[in-house]
């Protein structure tokens, strides 16, 4: 299952100094909410991505804590103020403590 899980990012590659840019993210994950029943009527145990941490040049930007009410394949978008060229890094973690990371470079022109 975990092989199917892929994070995706949409990040501008360049920005002006001080520009606030929009970052869009998506991770393919079923987000089992612990309410659903399988064909045999057994409850499928909860397994969701419960955290997404974002840093820029290793400085924290934001930390999102997801609950069961977030839709499958969680799409999350937010903003970042770019003062210098650097690397945006995102890490997602699920209930089984599996984690996935993605990086993207932004160049200040």
């Amino acid at each position: 299952m975990s092989d199917d899980i892929k994070p995706r990012l949409r990040v501008p590659t360049t920005a002006k100094k001080g520009e606030v840019v929009e970052i869009k993210t998506l991770i393919t994950h079923p987000m089992e909410n612990g309410q659903r029943k399988d064909a045999d009527g057994k409850i499928v145990p909860r397994l969701i991505v419960n955290s997404m941490k974002v840093s820029y040049n290793d400085k924290p930007v934001l930390d999102a804590k997801l609950e069961q009410a977030i839709a499958a394949n969680p799409f999350l978008s937010f903003f970042l103020r770019v003062e210098e060229s650097g690397t945006l890094k995102l890490t997602w973690t699920d209930d089984k403590n599996q984690s996935w990371s993605a990086e993207s470079k932004i160049e200040v022109a």
Binding site: K59, L62, D63, A64, K65, E67, A69, F78, F79, R81
Partner: peptide, 13 residues
């Protein structure tokens, strides 16, 4: 619960 977002000023918006 739905979601919690914690920011630093670096988020810009």
């Amino acid at each position: 619960g739905v979601i919690t977002w914690e920011f630093t000023p670096l988020a810009g918006k």
